[in-house]
Write a protein that binds this DNA or RNA. Structure first.
Length: 482
RNA sequence: GGCCCCUUAGUCUAGUGGUCAGGACGCAUGGUUCUCAGCCAUGAAUCAGGGGUUCGACUCCCCUAGGGGCUACCA
């Protein structure tokens, strides 16, 4: 029983965002590092906001990131089911156990009453705790209320009289005053458990040894501790990891359009890059390396080197990580997953080998595949459209472009070095070199003043396209003052 | 309002009493180049503030300030 068991327990109420993904990642890395078990548990007790579709996307996102779980829905494991909506009998059983032991009791207060009381205590500057109206109801009183059809929830009876200490692996000892919480609901009147109850029961039953979760759960831990204790469960270790904040320094939330994993997937980021970047939000290795595979991260990861202060999500840096990954892997590693992002025009006019070459060229600086269209624009065959600045450069260059085309036509071997040589020779004949020579050529071919190496570009576009495009460009400019 | 957490450049971080406070993104400059990118080199930029403790504080303690989280029959 020394095996580490951790879990990621999301609720399917929105797309998996970078904060949740990072929590999942840390759990995953910890499990892999320790040779333990990673559990995925779906917390779908909030029926209003949860949905099966979102759960499907969540699972896709997890798989896409490579965060495979050992136990979970659609994944096996002996301590399931792993979806809370399928465990309500279990929660009910334990809740009843607590009621018969006197550690919990039925409560008949309505939402309105509770809201009113909360408001009152807020106004008088007191912590809004439950006032205990239903705490000491006699069995007769309860039966009467039941007969009246009053809805009934179950409340945990808080009896703690000492301050509550949480030994947190990241923060050290955190102490909460004992009178901070009042009796809290564990089973809603709908028959479904609340988060704190379900989480504590499940973590215990699933034999979770380390609860690694976002810092926002730190204050909740005291309630869960009480549940553990009253049910006689062994305590897990807790590690509350710092939050990931948005630009505005507030907690990333689904509601405010937090950056989510599906979005990055759709935009064509390699999952390994996302994982690499996310790992560095709140964690750092012993040395100064930056580029890691998931396996390498798992090898290095420890909770001790997790920071305790929150981090701001920075897409610019993610882009850098991603561009690094793509450049390092090149077409050899990423071409297949990048192919669907190529514009149709390119896919139709080049064979696979040339497309891979194009990918290698644009992957020098490519944060995500959806930017291929823009980066590879110069490889579109045929005459591009020219704007005013192009016209300025092209004016009066007709004979140069003609000569260049002739030079390409005369080449025996269609190779980059030969093409470059040909351009220079043509230039020498006309007394042109450098920018005056290359820029009109680049403009005529691509309609842009910058782009990939010209000789390579021309080689890839092919002799027919190079010559044809140049001649057509000249023809188009013939009417002007050549 | 109450409770708790956090505080090194714009951002991510290293640092655990004595360091020129290190690295990375971004930014700027120069080099390479037809151009962009890349690469190389260089540079600007940081210990929130105030008290202690100490021979000596970024590092330990206290206070203040700022930020964040929680305070639900959401998670």
């Amino acid at each position: 029983m020394s095996e580490a068991r951790v879990r990621f327990a999301p609720s399917p109420t929105g797309y998996l965002h970078v904060g949740g993904a990072r929590t999942a990642l840390f759990n995953f890395l910890f499990a892999r590092h320790e040779g333990g078990v990673f559990i995925l548990r779906i917390e779908d007790t909030d029926v209003e906001r949860s949905s099966a579709e979102l759960e499907t996307v969540l699972i896709e996102d997890m798989r896409w990131l490579g965060l495979d779980w050992d136990e979970g829905p659609a994944g096996g494991g002996a301590l399931g089911p792993y979806r809370q909506s399928e465990r309500v009998d279990i929660y009910r059983e334990y809740a009843e156990k607590l009621v018969s032991a006197g550690a919990a009791y039925p409560c008949f207060c309505t939402d309105e009453e509770l809201e009113l009381k909360r408001e009152q205590s807020r106004r008088s500057g007191l912590p809004p705790r439950y006032d205990g109206s239903c705490r000491e109801l006699s069995e007769d009183e309860r039966q009467t209320k039941r007969r009246d059809g009053q809805s009934e929830s179950i409340r945990f009876r808080v009896t703690t009289e000492q301050d509550i200490r949480i030994e947190d692996l990241i923060r050290g000892e955190v102490v909460f005053p004992h009178d901070m919480v009042g009796d809290f609901v564990i089973m809603r009147s709908s028959g479904l458990p609340t988060y704190n109850f379900a989480a504590a029961v499940d973590d215990a039953l699933m034999e979770v040894t380390h609860v690694i979760r976002g810092e926002e759960h730190l204050p909740n831990t005291i309630r869960q501790l009480m549940i553990y204790e009253s049910l006689g469960f062994d305590l897990p270790a807790f590690a509350h990891i710092p939050l990931i904040l948005g630009d505005d320094r507030s907690k990333l939330s689904k509601r405010h359009g937090a950056p989510n994993i599906k979005d990055f997937r759709d935009r064509g980021y390699p999952p390994g890059a996302i994982v690499n970047y996310l790992a560095f939000l709140g964690w750092s290795p012993k040395d100064e390396r930056e580029m890691f595979t998931v396996e390498e991260l798992a090898g290095e990861f420890t909770l001790e080197s997790v920071a305790s202060s929150p981090a701001i999500f920075d897409e610019t840096k993610l882009n850098w990580f991603s561009a690094q990954h793509i450049r390092a892997g090149g077409a050899g590693k990423f071409f297949d997953e990048a192919l669907p992002f190529f514009p149709k025009e390119l896919v139709e006019s080049y064979d696979r080998e040339l497309l891979a070459e194009i990918f290698d060229i644009v992957s020098e600086n490519l944060p995500c595949y959806s930017m291929i269209e823009e980066s590879a624009a110069a490889f579109r065959r045929g005459v591009p459209s020219y704007d005013d600045s192009a016209a300025e450069i092209l004016d009066g260059t007709g004979h140069l472009l003609e000569a260049l085309a002739d030079g390409f036509g005369a080449l025996e071997e269609w190779a980059g070095a030969r093409i470059k040589q040909s351009i220079k020779e043509t230039g020498a004949d006309l007394g042109l070199k450098g920018k005056a020579l290359f820029m009109p050529l680049r403009m005529a071919l691509t309609g842009s003043s910058h782009g990939p190496d010209l000789a390579t570009l021309i080689r890839i576009r092919g002799r027919d396209d190079a010559i044809g495009t140049l001649r057509e460009a000249v023809a188009r400019y013939r009417g002007r003052n050549v």
